Simulated assay, not measured.
Amino acid sequence: MATVNMQQGYTAVLWVLAVLGMEATALGECELTRLLQDKLQYEMRLQYMKHYFPINYMVQVQYEEVLRPSNITRLRNGTVSEVALRYLWFHVSSQAVLRIHEVLPEKHPSWKYTQELCQLFDALGKEYSKYQQSDVEAVVADLVKLIHSTGVESRRKAVRPKALLDNCLKVMRMLYGAPCQWEST
């Protein structure tokens, strides 16, 4: 019964957003990113991505795998759609979490935490499976292609694991806060 009422509430919210001409995210996206937001609380990022790592530990990532709020602002000013920005955020953030997870041995205290983040991104990936690179702006499609290319020599950058997750959360809040009607936290 509660599920039906919740679905009716979501339907009403989506209708209002459509009437206002705003791009609405899929229900699954809002639910999954809310779970990610809960999982990326400051205390958890600090504990699992800083305290459990050696001092000044860095993960090697592609230059394109570092997505900051300033990048999103620049792309928005270049008239990249919100859908394309969320698509980009998903690919960049899921790769960043995967890079962190790959360097951890299974007995590391952060392994289970990063595995749970990977599972949430896998579930979110199902939401994004309907999008094709041809459906988003060329600049975003090119970045996503570059992020997932293995044979291409790309510039590498050393980044702290916590910084990767900090950026993931900040950008996620920029992209999902308003459409998913999150309260400011």
Score class of each variant (00 low, 15 high):
127 E>M: 11
116 E>T: 06
103 V>T: 14
117 L>G: 00
131 Y>L: 15
93 S>I: 00
46 L>I: 06
71 N>P: 00
99 R>L: 13
101 H>Q: 10
48 Y>E: 01
39 K>N: 13
123 A>P: 01
99 R>G: 05
133 Q>P: 03
104 L>V: 08
60 Q>I: 13
56 N>V: 07
43 E>W: 05
58 M>C: 12
110 S>Y: 03
67 L>D: 02
50 K>S: 15
88 L>H: 04
116 E>F: 03
77 N>S: 11
66 V>C: 07
92 V>G: 00
56 N>T: 08
130 K>H: 11
54 P>W: 04
80 V>L: 15
134 S>W: 13
124 L>Q: 03
84 A>M: 12
40 L>H: 04
93 S>Q: 04
63 Y>W: 10
84 A>S: 14
131 Y>Q: 10
130 K>S: 10
45 R>C: 06
51 H>L: 14
104 L>G: 07
76 R>K: 14
106 E>W: 14
47 Q>H: 12
45 R>P: 00
104 L>E: 02
144 V>W: 05
60 Q>F: 09
57 Y>W: 13
101 H>R: 12
132 Q>I: 05
56 N>D: 13
82 E>D: 15
53 F>I: 01
99 R>F: 12
55 I>K: 15
77 N>Q: 13
76 R>N: 02
56 N>S: 13
139 V>M: 10
91 H>V: 03
41 Q>H: 15
73 T>Q: 04
61 V>Q: 03
72 I>R: 00
123 A>E: 12
40 L>Y: 03
120 L>Q: 07
94 S>L: 08
41 Q>F: 07
118 C>L: 14
61 V>N: 05
79 T>D: 12
106 E>F: 10
69 P>H: 01
56 N>G: 09
42 Y>F: 11
92 V>A: 09
135 D>T: 04
122 D>F: 12
50 K>P: 01
49 M>Y: 04
135 D>R: 10
116 E>Q: 12
132 Q>A: 15
126 K>N: 09
125 G>R: 03
53 F>M: 06
59 V>K: 10
145 K>Q: 12
137 E>W: 04
49 M>E: 02
57 Y>G: 06
72 I>P: 00
84 A>N: 10
115 Q>W: 04
64 E>A: 11
78 G>R: 14
82 E>L: 15
38 D>K: 13
128 Y>L: 08
112 K>G: 05
93 S>C: 14
84 A>Y: 06
140 V>C: 03
91 H>Q: 11
66 V>S: 05
44 M>C: 07
132 Q>T: 08
119 Q>L: 14
135 D>E: 11
55 I>N: 10
49 M>V: 01
137 E>Y: 05
140 V>L: 11
138 A>K: 15
105 P>I: 08
92 V>C: 09
117 L>P: 00
88 L>N: 02
81 S>C: 12
42 Y>C: 04
132 Q>C: 10
104 L>D: 04
74 R>D: 08
50 K>V: 03
129 S>W: 12
139 V>H: 07
140 V>W: 03
68 R>F: 07
143 L>P: 00
114 T>M: 04
70 S>K: 09
43 E>H: 11
115 Q>L: 03
114 T>L: 02
101 H>V: 07
38 D>A: 14
134 S>R: 15
72 I>W: 00
135 D>K: 11
95 Q>N: 14
136 V>W: 01
135 D>H: 15
72 I>Q: 00
136 V>L: 05
81 S>Q: 12
91 H>A: 06
